Simulated assay, not measured.
Amino acid sequence: MPHTENLDHYFVFNPAEFDFYAVDCYELVREDELARTLAEIVLHAGTDFDGRERAPMRNAEARVTLAVTEAREGD
């Protein structure tokens, strides 16, 4: 299917958000290395060159994933 022009539509898959959703999936199945890698990508993509966050909620979720996977290393 062709890409949509209206990415604000709730029911449209946005390929740029794939990493964000994959972070949660990998965290849930305890693939922590993959979850951490994608969380770092999400943080990078969600932050402007000047450090301003473009996607604060996604970045917050990525930081939670980094904290959870860090805590699991001690298990």
Results as ranks from 00 to 15, higher is better:
E61C: 14
D75Y: 10
P56Q: 02
F11T: 05
Y21K: 15
M1D: 12
T65S: 14
Y10E: 06
V12D: 07
D24T: 10
A67E: 11
E70S: 14
A67Q: 10
A62P: 00
E61N: 15
T47D: 03
V42E: 01
D75C: 01
D8V: 00
R36C: 15
T4Y: 03
D75A: 07
E5C: 08
N59A: 12
M57L: 06
E61Y: 15
E5Q: 10
L34F: 09
V23R: 05
T47H: 09
Y10H: 09
L43I: 14
Y10D: 01
A55G: 07
R52Q: 11
R72L: 00
L7R: 04
A67W: 00
L7Q: 03
V29Y: 02
L28R: 13
V64N: 15
T69A: 07
E33R: 12
E17V: 02
R54E: 13
D75R: 06
L66I: 10
N14F: 00
L38A: 08
D32P: 05
L28V: 07
V12C: 06
H3G: 11
N59D: 06
D50S: 14
L7A: 06
A71C: 03
A71I: 11
D32T: 09
A62M: 00
M57V: 11
E40F: 12
A39M: 04
E70G: 11
T4S: 11
L28M: 14
N6P: 06
F11Q: 06
L43W: 08
T65W: 09
M1I: 03
L28G: 14
H44C: 11
R52T: 15
A45M: 01
L34G: 04
R63N: 02
A62T: 00
F49V: 01
E73G: 13
F49W: 07
H3M: 08
G74V: 11
D75Q: 07
T69L: 05
L38Q: 02
E31I: 05
T37K: 13
A67R: 08
L66S: 10
Y21D: 14
G46W: 03
E27M: 15
H44I: 07
D32Q: 11
L34D: 00
T37M: 08
L28H: 09
H9N: 10
E17G: 08
